[in-house]
Design a protein around this nucleic acid. Sequence first.
DNA 1: GTGGTCTAGACCACC
DNA 2: GTGGTCTAGACCACG
Lengths: 136, 136, 136, 136
Amino acid sequence: MFQLDVRSRKPIYEQLVDKIKELIINRILKPDEQLPSVRMLSSQLTINPNTIQRAYRELENQGYIYSIKGKGNFVSAIEHMPSNEQLNDLKKDIRKLIAEAIYLGLTKEDLYVLFDEAHHQTKGVKKHNDSGKFHK
Amino acid sequence: MFQLDVRSRKPIYEQLVDKIKELIINRILKPDEQLPSVRMLSSQLTINPNTIQRAYRELENQGYIYSIKGKGNFVSAIEHMPSNEQLNDLKKDIRKLIAEAIYLGLTKEDLYVLFDEAHHQTKGVKKHNDSGKFHK
Amino acid sequence: MFQLDVRSRKPIYEQLVDKIKELIINRILKPDEQLPSVRMLSSQLTINPNTIQRAYRELENQGYIYSIKGKGNFVSAIEHMPSNEQLNDLKKDIRKLIAEAIYLGLTKEDLYVLFDEAHHQTKGVKKHNDSGKFHK
Amino acid sequence: MFQLDVRSRKPIYEQLVDKIKELIINRILKPDEQLPSVRMLSSQLTINPNTIQRAYRELENQGYIYSIKGKGNFVSAIEHMPSNEQLNDLKKDIRKLIAEAIYLGLTKEDLYVLFDEAHHQTKGVKKHNDSGKFHK
DNA sequence: GTGGTCTAGACCACC
DNA sequence: GTGGTCTAGACCACG
C-alpha cells in the first residue's frame, strides 16, 4: 500500500506526509474519512509509532487533517490547490533543470525525450482529477 | 550577490554548490577561470573555510571545477559529451521534478506548458559578463 | 585488525575507506549488515568522528554502503550489474596498474603471470565468517 | 617532450621524478649523461624552478642521479631493478584489483578484456629493454 | 600564497 | 541512540 524507502535521504515521516497528502489531493482519501490509527499504520509499516505520530502532527499543522482526541485522525474538508508559492518553486526548478541540460549540450529535443521517458516511468498517475486547472 | 541562508534546512555547503553551479552554467564564470580561494571566500562570506572546502570538493566530484594543490580551484572546460553519470543525475532530477508536479496535481500537459515557457526564458541568458560576483 | 597509520602519506580517511571496502568485497561484512556507528569507531580507533564520517560518506558515494539518518550505516546489497561509473573506476585502476608495471620495467607477459597468480590466490577467500572485525 | 598534467592529483614534482626515472630505467638517458639544467627545463616546461629542483633532489636521494656543483646533474651508473618491495606492492595492488572486479561480478575473461584494452591504450611502451627478467 | 587533512567540540534532525 | 552539518583552529604539502 504505502511504498516507503527507508534508504532514501528523505526522512520517513516526510515521505509519509507526502504520500498521504497525495492521497488527499487525489480524493482517494475523502473529506472527513478516518485515517488509519497510529498503531495500525505503525505495525503495518513496521515503523516506529513516533514517526507516524510526527507525520500526522505535520499534516494537521498544514491543515490537511484534523484529529479528535479519543476518536482518531480525519481528512479535512478544505480544498488543497497548489499555492502560487509552490507553483513558483516548481517553475524555478524547471528553469534550473533546463539551464543545466543546455550546459551539458543537450538540445530541446533531447530533453523532451528524457522527459517523456521519465514520465512513463512515473507510474501510479492518478486520473479522476479535474485537470487542466493550471493551463495558462 | 551571494545570498546564503544559514537558517535554511538546506545545508550551507549545498547552497554554495548550487549558486556556483549556476554561475558556471550561465557562463558568468568561464572555463579555466580561477575561483576565489577557500580562505578568501571564507572570510568574505564569514563562513568557515571547511564549509567552503566541502562545497568545492562537491563541485569537483560533479565535474564542474578542478583543483590544483598550491594553485587554486578552476572552472572545468565543458566537454560537450555529457558523461553517463551526469546524464543519470539529470534523469534523476527530471523524475523528481515530474513526481513533484504530479503530486501538486498537474497533468502532463500542464507540465509541457511550464516547460516550454521556461525554455524560452532560458535562451539568451548566456553572454553578458558580470562582475562583483562573489560579494555577499 | 584495523591497522591505521596516522603518519602515512595516505590520508586516514582513505585508509579507512580501503580497509572497509576490503571487508565488504571479501564478504566479511555482509549486505545490509550495520557498520559500527561513527562515534563508536571514532572512540575505538581514537580518531576524530569527522574523519570517520568522511570515510563513510566516501564509501556511500562509491556505492558500498548506504546510511539512514537516525539509524546507522549499512552495507549495500551488491547489484550484479556494475554501474558505468564503477566500471570506469575499475578501468582507471587497471590503467594505473599497467602504467606502474611498465614503469618498473615489466613486460606484458610478466604482468599476465602475476595476474594469473593473483587470480588463483583470490578464489575462495569468500565464505568464512570472522569476528572481532573492528578492533584496533 | 615531457607530458605533464597540471590537473592531475599527483604533484608535478612527482610526475617529473617518475618520468625521468622511466627514461633512466629504459636507458634513454644513459649513465653519466647530463640532465637538462634546472633553468632550461623550468623555462621549457613553464614550471617553477623550485619544482624542478625538488624533483632533482628527490632523484638524487633515491640514487638515480648525482649532482656536481657548478656543472650540473648526471645520471648515476648503478642498475635500477625493481626492488622486491616494489614488486610486492604491485602484487598487492593486483590482488586488490581482482578482488574488486570479482565483487562487481566480472569474470576472469571480462577482466582480461579490460586488461588488454587498457594495455593498448597505454602507449609509449619501450622495447629495447632486456625484458623477461621477471618471469617466474 | 594555495588546497588538503585532521582535531575538538558543538548543535541539529531523525528514529 | 543514530547520522549530518558547522565552527575554530591547527598543521602539512605544493608551487
